[in-house]
Nucleic acid binder design. Structure first.
Length: 430
RNA sequence: GGGGAGGUGGCAGAGUGGUCGAAUGCGGCGGUCUUGAAAACCGUUGGGCGCGAGAGCGUCCCCGGGGUUCGAAUCCCCGUCUCCCCGCCA
């Protein structure tokens, strides 16, 4: 959420930021609401002050036995009361409208975010690794002999319909190994704290991170009005909602392995084969809560944590910075990491690392108290995939495939696979 | 699911209709004393919003939301969370 004071101070800058995102100007409308709201607040509080003064004098009048004055004050307070109530109601209504309006407006892009309309305008930052030269036509993951036995889309369809998968045997184990490997690396090497939280959350949490109110159709809701998290960013970031943290406690660095649920509304017909895009998938997520001046550096650190996973797995990737038109609602700057998928002969998104500045912190009222004392300030929040487990499985399978349909698995997974690093063409670990 | 007890400042814990944003203790911060520290003593110590250049002024907040009353931390209703007992259960 945006700072109403900042909009007041520089409405032009606010509209300019919206324009970079391709959004219509909103400052004029918002400031009109804000002005009306503040006028009502001032009037209501002045009237309330008079009421309080009279109410306070009643006690004294009673004590000194001045019945006449007592009655007069009673009447005065009663008269004021109605006036105050009416003005307060108006102020509340205007405030609610202002808040609601602000809840629908996306974050402003950072200065260095490249201008652009869609993903074609994203800018490549770097590449790591060299895509392997195959002496045969590399297949997509669902066509690799060794993987086929463990990727059961038919049974998944029977259970749950389209965009689900049942993993079996060695493939299921490799998938699990990847998640364990990622978590262990983040905990032991990157200094993150493991968290295992709910995947069912209240609407407030979804509003805090920005999924609601604008993107209701992208997530699933239970009949009890819980929401299934589309990413554990929601769970992890909202752990500090409403808190005032001590500066010494920052940065807070969290990681979680969780199920994620997405309706994929609007992506019908996209990536329908294989397990690239599912309604339910697993992801290891990273979240950092930092001081405002530390968030840019933290984003680079987090980006490195995610890239490091791919490097340890030996999967070539490229890193891009998203342009203004391709960034998510809450983000101020986002880097995507795209893994090389030889079966598709292209790079595909496997991680997204964003800083949200104080945008989410304002929504969830997450603050810290400066070390020297003084007023609490909003923290900065960051999140990044580290990584999407299912997509990493695809990358491992496609990059390690052999002509005979077997797959050579990364050395890094050895501790998790009993040292057996070959997925045979028959779908067994060897 | 049924029954009971509770949610007060960073923590502990008073306060059951008026002068309470709220005693007291602990903790924190500043100071006196001390070579330094401890102890002791003194002072200070929540957040939001509005107005104001500022000092400051006003207003709201005792889990959340309604209500009663001239006046609510205190009374009533609903919700929520915690704890205890019973039932059920991975």
């Amino acid at each position: 959420m945006h700072d109403i004071r900042a909009i007041r101070e520089n409405p032009q800058a606010f509209d300019a930021a919206l324009a970079r995102r391709g959004e219509a100007p909103a400052a004029a409308e918002i400031l009109a609401l804000d002005e009306a709201r503040r006028a009502r607040i001032a009037a209501a509080e002045a009237a309330k002050a008079e009421q309080n003064r009279a109410a306070k004098a009643i006690g004294a009048a009673k004590a000194r036995g001045d019945e006449e004055e007592f009655q007069r004050l009673r009447n005065e307070v009663a008269a004021k009361k109605a006036e105050v109530a009416a003005m307060q109601a108006e102020a509340r209504e205007l405030d609610a409208r202002l808040q609601e309006r602000l809840m629908w407006i996306p974050n402003a892009p950072a200065e260095d975010v490249p201008e652009g309309k869609d993903e074609d305008d994203n800018v490549e930052i770097r590449r790591w690794g060299t895509p392997r030269a195959f002496d045969f036509a590399p297949r997509e993951h669902f066509d690799i002999a060794g993987a086929r036995a463990g990727l059961d889309f038919e049974t998944a369809a029977k259970l749950s319909g389209a965009r689900f998968v049942v993993l079996r045997g060695a493939v299921a184990r490799i998938h699990r190994a990847l998640a364990q490997f990622m978590l262990d690396t983040h905990i032991a090497e990157n200094g993150l704290t493991e968290v295992n939280g709910p995947v069912l959350v209240l609407p407030e949490a979804m509003r805090g991170t920005g999924q609601l109110p604008k993107f209701t159709e992208d997530s699933y809701r239970t009949t009890d009005d819980w929401w299934l998290i589309p990413t554990s960013e929601v769970t992890l970031t909202n752990t500090v909602a409403g808190d005032i943290l001590e500066e010494a406690a920052l940065p807070v660095r969290l990681t979680a392995h969780s199920l994620c649920f997405r309706s994929e509304a609007g992506s019908a017909g996209k990536d329908t084969r294989g397990m690239l895009r599912q309604h339910q998938f697993e992801k290891v997520e990273m979240v950092s809560i930092t001081r405002p001046d530390a968030s840019d550096e933290e984003q680079q650190r987090m980006l490195r944590c995610a890239e490091d996973i791919l490097e340890r797995l030996g999967i070539p990737y490229r890193t891009v910075i998203l342009c203004t038109g391709d960034m998510g609602f809450s983000a101020r700057r986002t880097y995507d990491i795209e893994a090389w998928l030889p079966g598709q002969n292209r790079y595909r998104e496997i991680s997204s690392v964003s800083t949200c500045g104080d945008f989410q912190a304002r929504r969830m009222n997450a603050r810290f108290r400066p070390a020297g004392g003084g007023k609490p300030e909003f923290v900065h929040t960051l999140n990044g995939s580290g990584l999407a487990v299912g997509r990493t499985l695809i990358a491992v399978l496609e990059n390690g495939q052999n002509a005979d349909g077997s797959v050579t698995l990364p050395q890094a997974l050895a501790p998790y696979l009993g040292g057996r690093l070959t997925l045979t063409a028959e779908g067994e670990l060897a």
